[in-house]
Design a binder for these strands. Structure first.
Lengths: 262, 262
DNA sequence: ACAAAAAAATAACATAGGTTATTGAATAGG
DNA sequence: CCTATTCAATAACCTATGTTATTTTTTTGT
């Protein structure tokens, strides 16, 4: 059930205790939102870290004149910036796409993690670094890729991230974004998103029907997008900590070292 | 002298001991680079955190076919992602613009910080969050702003960041970027950068001569850019920790709490 | 099951920004 | 100090993407 755990385990093997505290945190202070609802708004004082449990959400920014840019998507298991609470004001808004459930994680939860759950702390750092890498890739996407490449790239990214969190059965995944959402995320106009989508469909690169995305050949889509998955840092080889090595968070000097923070 | 210290002190008041360890770290393992030299390349294993002491550098990504996007600039006092060492491979390159000196900071240095220098740890978290915010703003910049707004925005950002690090005397600051660099950073062609620059000059929004940027009226430039500085989180009011409150890093339960990590 | 609303598709036309090529002005290096 | 490069400027032309408007299809709420 817990997409966050599944995702983090791609980087670090978690112990039963690790999983328990994550499960607990994801079940306290859960809120439900309808579709197209704001979770926080630019200018608000950040109070909690938001973890998306179900549904899709996004970060977005708006200019005074209304131009809107989606700067990232939150899929189940994704959370907003660690430590946001140290900032005075949000510089962007977070809103739902579909109806969604969100767990609010307190500062205290993170204190607890960094004091006694080194594997989780490491995994959260990994998540932070991956999110930064994704944001950089979006910069590249908007700055250099053509409309077709850009959309293909977004489809690839979502498909990969979905798989990482354990969704995306086979060639298909849930895909509730409207063409207007795609426009806001790719910096294209709605009309051009529509045109480009038709081009992608004509090339059998994606099948987008109902609210489902099907990718007949991920390889061909990746080629069309000039997609290189390295920025998602999904490497299993990279597992730095192993539950067998430190069976318990409270055990051994090495674990304590790792708990020190970062 | 130390731009990093000056920058961090905009968020947290550092103690003499804090300043000392930062100064020490910035003087060990210093490397010099010529202009247009790579500090790390995509695919390399990250080993250290790089702190730019003098000169300008940038992060960039490249597509197979050579299209290049600068995804961020490093000014003196800027450093690359904390904790990069937990990743297996760099997903981008870092290269100099001008000749530059760079200090390499080890994993051990950060362990030391998070164990005994809570104010620095907090300030580095602030820096991490600001960098994430900057990257989001670049996404917005490329996705929604016109060429003129985009360039004006970049000038504003650099001007603000320069001031924060204690450079930028009055209305001017050092500005070694070529039009080709600006093109790579804004996702525009060199020719259009040139055109747009002339438009900015005609409107007396910037004076760019030699390697110096002069902003006759920051207010007017900000208007032209639809620039809102909130994403830089420069608020003094936001200072969370004060050196007077915790004169020594090793002192008191409160400091220890804060040292826990995040 | 139906009406109302939202989303997607299509069309005609407009433009911001890209491309290629050439020339002129600064720098830098020997 | 002179030459070789790099950088900036200008020009003519081109195209990817934006705009506005309308129609068709799908979804949603009752």
């Amino acid at each position: 059930m817990n997409a966050l755990i599944r995702k983090l385990e791609h980087f670090v093997k978690l112990s039963p205790g690790d999983r328990a505290i994550l499960t607990r945190a994801a079940s306290e202070r859960v809120r439900k939102f309808g579709p197209r609802a704001d979770i926080t708004r630019e200018g608000d004082r950040p109070k909690d870290v938001h973890l998306v449990l179900t549904g899709w959400a996004c970060r977005y920014k708006q200019l005074e004149d209304g131009r809107r840019q989606v700067v990232s998507f939150f899929l189940p298991g994704d959370m907003c910036d660690l430590n946001v609470f140290i900032l005075k004001e949000m510089d962007h808004s977070i809103g739902t796409i579909t109806s969604a459930t969100v767990a609010d994680l307190s500062r205290e939860f993170f204190d607890e993690i960094s004091a006694g759950y080194p594997r989780i702390a490491t995994a959260l750092w990994w998540e932070t670094l991956v999110n930064a890498a994704i944001q950089r890739e979006w910069t590249m996407n908007l700055g250099q890729r053509t409309a077709l490449e850009r959309m293909a790239h977004l489809f690839c990214e979502i498909f990969f991230r979905f798989r990482l969190a354990g969704f995306a059965e086979g060639l298909s995944c849930d895909f509730p974004l409207t063409q207007a959402d795609l426009a806001d995320a790719t910096g294209l106009s709605k009309v051009h998103v529509n045109r480009t989508l038709q081009e992608l469909r004509a090339g059998r690169l994606v099948i987008l029907k109902g609210k489902t995305l099907t990718v007949p050949s991920l390889e061909r889509l990746m080629d069309a997008a000039l997609f290189n998955a390295n920025y998602l840092h999904m490497d299993h080889e990279g597992r730095q900590l192993d539950a067998n090595e430190f069976p318990d968070a409270t055990d051994g000097a090495k674990a304590r070292d790792l708990a020190k923070g970062y």
